[in-house]
Computed example of a mutant assay.
Amino acid sequence: MTSKNQTPEPASGQVADAVKGNWVDRLAPVATRPYLRLSRADRPIGTWLLLLPCWWGLLLAMLHDGQATWHDLWIFAGCGIGAFLMRGAGCTWNDITDRHIDGSVARTASRPIPSGQVTVTGALVWLAAQALIALCVLLTFNIVAIALGVLALLPVAIYPFAKRFTWWPQVFLGLAFNWGALLAWTAHTGQLEWPAVMLYLAGIAWTLFYDTIYAHQDKEDDALIGVKSTARLFGNSSPRWLLGFLVLTVTLQMIAVLLATIDGSAGGLLVALLGPWAMGLHMHWQLRRLDLSDNDRLLGLFRSNRDAGMLPVLIFAVALLV
């Protein structure tokens, strides 16, 4: 079944919603391009959205105990490597499980599996390769962080099926995408604590915000093929729900900051509290520009969440210096 507004696959194999002129289409060896597209390397926003909660967790953990070590530099870099690999592995798994659905949706029909650029067997081999390299990075962390990293595979495995049985698949995406807040905190401190849990919950609320915006692009095709999403559930009431997710994100992140820094310097606490507020202001800016009928606007707002999530990273880093 093909959607009536399906766009044809670009002759070059480019994916319809990829960033134009991205490095994969311009610079990557031709043979690797279908696999890099399968990992969404041509659409880096997902890697950023997976990585930023990791950096929140690491920086807040450093604020919590007031110290930084050389190993923290590796945790910082390792989170970046791991986010790229695990986002790629997760997207590969998602496209394997969704290969029949993707072929019926205009925006996703040009992806490597439904368009015939990659076989399912090839995708499985690529999935295993990415996961094994990510495991090598994970094994450089402490045992508690390693255990959390392995446990993270559960929400990653479940997420692609969520839209088949719940109107809230974005919750499952949030569970998977924000796990790094728990893992990076634990990689630094050696134990899981309440500030990390609050930060994780804030990330889930943020995911509900940005992925509801994203899902509005597909709501017509999703309705035709019976795929569920918060965009379809909320419909024209989405702005009110998004405002609620904004407030929840800021509130939970502020609680995380307070729990992590209450025993530290007053200056560090006050500066760190600016992080949630700055992020909330960016999310409010997105709400003011929201147009549920403009897919280009929706995609642009979704991508702007890299900047929203980077604001706490920068402000937490400044708070370390206070």
Rank of each mutant, 00 (worst) to 15 (best):
G80P: 12
K228N: 05
I213G: 00
G275R: 11
F302W: 14
Q67A: 05
T92W: 08
K228S: 11
A205K: 08
F177C: 13
N22Q: 08
L139T: 08
Q6V: 07
N178M: 01
A223L: 09
L153P: 04
S304T: 02
G264D: 04
S104E: 08
W48Y: 05
N94Y: 14
V150K: 09
Y159M: 15
S229D: 10
D294G: 12
P10I: 01
V15A: 00
I96E: 08
I255W: 09
L301R: 07
A129T: 05
L182P: 14
D296I: 03
L248K: 04
F302I: 07
Y35F: 14
L73K: 07
L270C: 11
L233H: 02
M198K: 03
L151T: 11
L73N: 10
D25C: 01
N5C: 06
A61D: 01
N236K: 05
R40Q: 05
R40L: 11
P8D: 13
F84L: 15
V144L: 12
M279F: 05
R37P: 03
M254R: 00
L281N: 13
D211I: 00
K219N: 07
P112Q: 08
L292S: 06
V250A: 06
G174S: 07
L52C: 12
A31T: 12
T97A: 12
L183P: 03
F161E: 13
R306Q: 15
T251F: 05
S110F: 09
P112F: 14
A181I: 08
F302S: 06
V313Y: 09
N22T: 14
D211P: 06
S12Q: 01
S304E: 12
